[in-house]
Design a protein around this nucleic acid. Structure first.
Lengths: 229, 229
DNA sequence: CCAAAAGTGTTTCACGTACACCCATGC
DNA sequence: GCATGGGTGTACGTGAAACACTTTTGG
């Protein structure tokens, strides 16, 4: 069976840059290609868009199928349409980036599979296609957006310490932050709620855990508030 | 002649939101459709992507062909892939936004053609397809980006007065700005160069004209400077 | 000389930044 | 009791915001 059109058509794909946060650095999820081109090379999870699914749906489907990743924050990044980005034929790809909680055991379990790996951003293998370019753009977007939108929380467990949150910003922004000033600022935004839990299993004083209050954020945003770190 | 593929493929298009700045408001360039669907309705300029051209090239080609617009600032906005955005078949469109200098006589001349019009953003006709949605997103993007990137200048003539520039920000951001504070701030950024020209043909004191110095901007940016209005 | 917009400084307040020590806990 | 990170306050400087009058020019 085949499908015919009056004019030639590019193939349409999606690719996903999935970020995860470890203790000390930002990681990205890669899959090892099983087939040519770029056989055995590492690549971003992705694939062709089906006619009966939206772009977002295609991205989520590919994430689930290829990497077992579900329930992540997902946002469209950019569409790449260079003529020879795929050696086989013209393929235009809509790139997405996703933020996953590495602390989530389902994510851990799913990505334990063969051919799926988390790579530190500053120790990457050579990537297939123009995927390095896509990844660079995703990192830039994350760096820019984390400062004025509450997306950092998508990389942390639901309850986190202020030190964890500070580390997150330091890792993503690539700068050191002052502990006292950071706490003053983040608490003054009035987006976090103190829980009655503390860190577990540390051999020093346990840190208090906080959670992000999205309702508060939405309410403030409606009133014209704009967060900024 | 026809082209066959093993799996069905969506058609791929580009659409452009072209902004222009008049004395008192922001305008967008629309074209009147000659054929169904949405015959006679107003729509964003755009069309199908050819196999041998990049997405950017397709956007520029359509702008030139449909509206006679060339040499504008152009940036990819977002890709829209809802299933029924086009009643004929599945069409995925990569949307762009462009900033044109309405003062440019070539732009004026080209868009004098039948079926091309500049519409004020708060007095728009009903648009074809999901073009209102695309336009809303473009306006949001412009509002966000104009504050931290030197793109406002793309809407002004090469030499402009500080009052013109202030009006630009007021119109795009939808807020009033204080004249003295605005001048202090914009001049302190050290991105503008005073020329020895002044406004012509006004019946009051003529304003000094300035120009944006892109070299200075690039140099400062390399040094970590980030502009902000 | 009148209308219209250009151009110009100072004060006040909020926020960002720099900076060091004691506290709680587990081993 | 010691190692480890948790938690806290103040002083200073910079930048944002508020605010009104004089100057220039053309008609």
């Amino acid at each position: 069976m085949s499908y015919s059109y009056q004019y030639p058509r590019a193939a349409l794909a999606v690719d996903c840059v999935v970020f995860g946060l470890s203790e000390s650095d930002l990681k990205v999820l890669l899959i090892q290609r099983k087939i040519a081109p770029f056989q055995l090379a590492w690549a971003l999870p992705g694939g062709f868009v089906r006619l009966e699914e939206t772009l977002d749906a295609a991205a989520r489907r590919e994430l689930a199928e290829e990497a077992g990743v579900t329930d992540v924050y997902l946002e469209q990044l950019y569409t790449f349409g260079d003529l020879n980005r795929d050696p086989r034929e013209r393929v235009v790809t809509v790139a997405y980036y996703a933020l996953a909680k590495l602390s989530d055991h389902r994510i851990q379990a799913a990505t334990d599979a063969m051919g799926v790996g988390w790579y530190s951003l500053d120790d990457l293998p050579k990537l297939a296609f123009d995927h390095q370019h896509i990844l660079d753009m995703a990192r830039d977007r994350l760096r820019g957006k984390v400062r004025y939108a509450p997306i950092g929380f998508e990389l942390l467990p639901p309850r986190f310490s202020l030190t964890q949150l500070q580390r997150l910003y330091e890792i993503i922004l690539g700068t050191e932050l002052d502990k006292r000033n950071f706490r003053k600022k983040i608490l003054s935004l009035d987006l976090l709620v103190e829980t009655d839990e503390v860190e577990q299993g540390v051999r020093h004083r346990a840190a208090r855990l906080y959670r992000f209050d999205r309702r508060k954020y939405d309410r403030l945003t409606k009133q014209g508030f704009e967060m900024s770190i």
